[in-house]
Nucleic acid binder design. Structure first.
Lengths: 113, 113
DNA sequence: TTTCATACTTTCAAAACGCAAGTAATTTAG
DNA sequence: CTAAATTACTTGCGTTTTGAAAGTATGAAA
């Protein structure tokens, strides 16, 4: 049995996704990556204010899940930078669906721009 | 300020959605409702094995969020039963996107049937 | 009516969270 | 070049949430 399936609660793709994204912060990191964030400070600067220990943990978990990979920073600095893999970019429909639901059903939510 | 916006981390619809669904169990309850589950035992029987205290908590939270509402059981019993509201049914695209992502990127996941 | 099933609630240890402070490496200012 | 500031974390610790188990009360069945 694989390492991933060993800790899997069921073969349900939804349950499996929640094993990775089932918390209040992980998908916000993915959201920020989709908007172009790439460095630690970028994620930390998001309005939700993720604690730095959780941010470090989430980036590590997303990396080991193959959703995020290290990259060179766009500005050439030697600070660590991160970007979505194909697996990570494939989460766009999930984010979009959640965004659309929130915009329609939760009063006062809005996109930036 | 409304009760909902008071505890909101940001006006982002994604963050707002995660305030409600950002845990490992809530969306599984919604999934089961979409598949026709309506009674406590139905949710408890799901393969993931949600602890009963968490199930009670999640059903209560989904109700107060207007995603789930009480209804009469289809078999006429007087046990409590639950169903999705319009707001809850509107989560279908979110579940579908998560399911599709899992099916494509997480080996060994599968739908039932 | 007594037995079983259902729908929870309670208890409690373990894990996760979140805030604050500390540290090491990188960048910038002078 | 050097000192100060920024960045990317890690560590500590009190609080909250989780999850496993057992307990209880009501509905259903025999």
């Amino acid at each position: 049995m694989s390492a991933a399936s060993a800790k899997r609660r069921s073969p349900c793709p939804v349950a499996c996704g929640l094993d990775l994204f089932g918390d209040r912060w992980t998908l916000l990191v993915v959201r920020d990556l989709m908007f172009g964030a790439e460095r630690f400070k970028d994620f930390a600067a998001a309005p939700e204010g993720i604690p730095t220990n959780l941010l470090a943990d989430r980036l590590a978990r997303l990396q080991s899940a193959g959703v995020v990979e290290p990259t060179a920073a766009a500005d050439g600095s030697r600070h660590p930078a991160y970007r979505l893999t194909a697996k990570g970019k494939a989460l766009y429909p999930v984010l979009a669906a959640l965004r659309d639901w929130g915009l329609e059903w939760e009063k006062g939510t809005r996109t930036r721009g």
